[in-house]
Design a protein around this nucleic acid. Sequence first.
DNA 1: AAGTGGTCTAGACCACTGC
DNA 2: CAGTGGTCTAGACCACTTT
Lengths: 252, 252
Amino acid sequence: MAVLDNPTSPTRLEAQPLYVKARNIMVDRLISGQWRPGQMLPSEFAIAAELGVSQGTVRKALDDMTTEGLVVRKQGRGTFVAEAEDNSILFRFYRLTPDDHQNSSSGPTFPESKYLARSQGAATQQERDIFNLLADDRVWRFQRLRSNEDGPILWEQLVLPLRYFGDFTEQTQLPNNVYQFYSSNYGIIVAKVNEQLRAVSAPDDVAEMLHLPTGAPLLEIDRRAIALDDRVVEWRRSLCRSDTMHYRNELK
Amino acid sequence: MAVLDNPTSPTRLEAQPLYVKARNIMVDRLISGQWRPGQMLPSEFAIAAELGVSQGTVRKALDDMTTEGLVVRKQGRGTFVAEAEDNSILFRFYRLTPDDHQNSSSGPTFPESKYLARSQGAATQQERDIFNLLADDRVWRFQRLRSNEDGPILWEQLVLPLRYFGDFTEQTQLPNNVYQFYSSNYGIIVAKVNEQLRAVSAPDDVAEMLHLPTGAPLLEIDRRAIALDDRVVEWRRSLCRSDTMHYRNELK
DNA sequence: AAGTGGTCTAGACCACTGC
DNA sequence: CAGTGGTCTAGACCACTTT
């Protein structure tokens, strides 16, 4: 019996279109790890036959998932689970740009990271609220300084719940592209991020690291990264120099 | 003969799918004003018959235009040209939110505007670059202070080329929602905006208007509004208080 | 040549709106 | 009730990639 056959739905509450149900089933396979990043999906016809719907319905579901950035379609080759290291996806969540990159040879570059410190501790009330944690939950905290070819551009702290990243040790090396790391090592796919931007005055220590005077205006970016299953899996607070960089945003 | 019939395309350079051609024809009708904001479009079948394609092809074109925010589809009623005053569209380009709106009854509110000054003058080199103007072009400049129920939240300057808004007089009153005004009075539909965000120190005069000390960190938003035909039609520079407000952004 | 996604069609039926 | 958009199907053909 096909997966989607359910002629006598008991509750009648879920009057979802077939293509939405098909999408949800496929997203579940991404969440469960049955389909892993980089892997090729079955063909549209194969999925359609398995779910008991037409190929056009599967196509609409896959189109939606393409728009969400979950899968990548390549004509003549197949449909693949999106990887964080896909080139276009490297910059998907990265909006900081040098003010004047006529001078640089090409567009914005992805900054390198130098890890300054790490610690583990009990989650604060704020952290418990953000991650929906219990009173005895613990978190990892990482501080790092990120630089491009012109020097340091931002300081940031990452907070990760032990609950999701429990096997971290004091020796675990975080790479520069952490979302790729979450994906390949923990099967945690970051589906979207919510950011709040503010202007703040640089505290002493950060100002020094960025070679700026104390009190210089910095762009603060408070980011919560949200996984496929809607859990907040990372909280990040970045302080970015604003004299040579800006945050670009296109609204449609 | 149907509009899209073109069996012997001379150049063969435009191998666009039919639904892209259909979309472009319909966007041209928005640009030309043949279809005006709020107006109901012909039915999918009527458009399909006129263009000589199937209803499914017109549907795909209209779906794309819906995603672009150009039209609004209402089941059982019809497809309508999007209006700037459509409720959801009021907030489409407005990302500023009070830090703590648990206190306010509902979500973010659209701030009121008090116009402080206006002037007309020759375009600066920067303005000519932004708008792609000639040496003798002139621009209007408006300054306004925007406030919500808790007081003033931002100061901003709007720059508009006379070329596009030539019949402005010293008496023309700009409303609060300017994009609706551009649309209904000039047929200029803002399709997207490009923003650059920075942190800056408040200059004396703006600090005073926002009841902040001189040098307080402010969020600067440099926005260029782009019309359907890809012209930049408005340049806006906003300085927003950052102690009680933030800029929210969801990246997918 | 075989297999994939991309486009396009024709037609059926459903869900919603307004007369 | 008629007219609209929304969903779903089945099938055809095209464009691209790999074998």
